[in-house]
């Protein structure tokens, strides 16, 4: 994978993470702090979180072709780093007020991560479908 392709994918992931973080903030906020009020700065929070969550994605880059096992290991490391990054950011901001809230946030990070993976999978699924249709045509 070229560095350009890698960065394009990271940017696409960042936008999806941003949307996911916004949704997670809305859901968890309405559960744990429904009375909380925010200023305009809150609009930047998903973008900032998404940016920091995209940085560990560098572990997925390799100029060489990776085997599926290597890819899965890097994906797991990436996920653990994202969890660590997010929980550290939330800890610094004082958002980890209890164990159950920390767990809920960790689960929310996992959910956003899985949604990002699923979105990529669905996008590739459409490409595979196109390829299958074209394959059928050339065989005819």
């Amino acid at each position: 994978m070229s560095i350009k392709e890698f960065l394009e994918r990271q940017l696409s992931n960042m936008l999806m993470i941003q949307a996911g973080v916004g949704l997670a903030m809305g859901v968890l906020g309405s559960i744990y702090e429904p009375e909380a009020r925010f200023g305009y700065k809150a609009f930047f929070a998903p973008l900032i979180y998404a940016f920091f969550c995209t940085l560990p994605g560098i572990v997925g880059y390799s100029a060489k072709e990776l085997t599926m096992k290597q890819m899965l290991i890097r994906e797991l490391i990436n996920f653990l780093l994202v969890e660590l990054t997010m929980l550290s950011l939330l800890y610094v901001q004082g958002a980890l007020k209890s164990v159950d809230r920390a767990l809920a946030l960790a689960v929310a990070v996992l959910a956003v991560y899985l949604v990002t993976l699923l979105a990529g999978w669905l996008r590739d699924g459409r490409v595979a479908q196109d390829m299958n249709e074209q394959l059928k045509k050339i065989k005819e």
Partner: peptide, 25 residues
């Protein structure tokens, strides 16, 4: 047929049943 693998890769299922990885590149 083709089907998606992880991170922009694809599998090509060959007529003998073998799956070949098509790298993202």
């Amino acid at each position: 047929s083709f089907r998606p693998a992880l991170n922009g890769r694809f599998y090509a299922r060959m007529k003998n049943g073998e799956d070949i990885i098509i790298s993202r590149q």
